[in-house]
Design a protein around this nucleic acid. Structure first.
Lengths: 132, 132
DNA sequence: TCGAACCATCACACCTATGTGAAGGTCAAC
DNA sequence: GTTGACCTTCACATAGGTGTGATGGTTCGA
């Protein structure tokens, strides 16, 4: 498929698809006329990239962890250099910390919401933790 | 305490403390000589801000949710406007999605690590999902 | 009274992920 | 064969979180 279709199917501006390519997160074949030609595969891949970006990882790191996250679930064990494994371990660690921090803060927000919603007479649409 | 101490105790560059103030995430008293004067309280507060930034929230949003997250755990129920509650609900939702996305990807990385570490013979320190 | 170590403001610079538009090639349909 | 919808590259712009340095005031100890 060409860039327009990939853009539409992933909800990603063409500009960004070119950017991801520039950052070497994806690689596009070229048809005779120079147009980018994407395999079906890239729909998932782009979605995954966006998910990781959304999660706060920089393209630099995403580039490193992507090869391990084949959407086909065929894990690429081959070619795992020690440096790469170290990077992954570090990043795994960071992701975990991030998740914890986010969770803590989200729960704090949730607690606050429960309180203000309850404000004496509990809101039936949103059971508060203690009201449950 | 002055900015230097707060900086050191929170591991945050002075520059950023001033930036957070500019963004109105924190407010500093001023002593007679014009120096910023921080209450003990701000150590926690700054740490919290950094946690939220680290989690990917922009200062704009952090500013809104901070008043609900008093570290003293004295929840500020007063002055919760409907707009603010709506923002919080939206943000709570986004945080949850973020956590899910992050978790999914982290687990994928973990799975990969478990595989390459075990490379045939499973690594006892990292139980693989199916081995468990 | 001098120097070191603080503090202040201001301002320019950077990086990353984006937006946006210009200038031009390709191709299918009318 | 021209129009319109695609595609290309190039390039400048913006926003948010930071880095860094210039320039100068305050405080304190030697």
């Amino acid at each position: 498929m060409r860039i327009g279709e990939l853009s539409e199917r992933t909800g990603t501006p063409r500009r960004l698809l070119r950017y991801y390519e520039e950052q070497r997160l994806i690689v596009a074949d070229r048809s005779a006329n120079g147009y980018r030609d994407y395999d079906e595969f890239y729909v998932d891949r782009v979605l995954q990239i966006r998910g990781l970006l959304e999660a706060g990882l920089p393209t630099r790191i995403i580039k490193q962890i992507l090869p391990c996250l084949e959407t086909t679930r065929t894990i690429h064990v081959l070619g795992a250099t020690p440096e790469m494994i170290a990077t992954l371990e570090r990043e795994h660690q960071r992701m975990t910390e991030r998740i914890q921090g986010l969770t803590r803060n989200r729960d704090a927000v949730a607690g606050y919401l429960a309180t203000v919603r309850g404000e004496g007479r509990p809101d039936p649409t949103t059971p508060s933790p203690r009201a449950a």
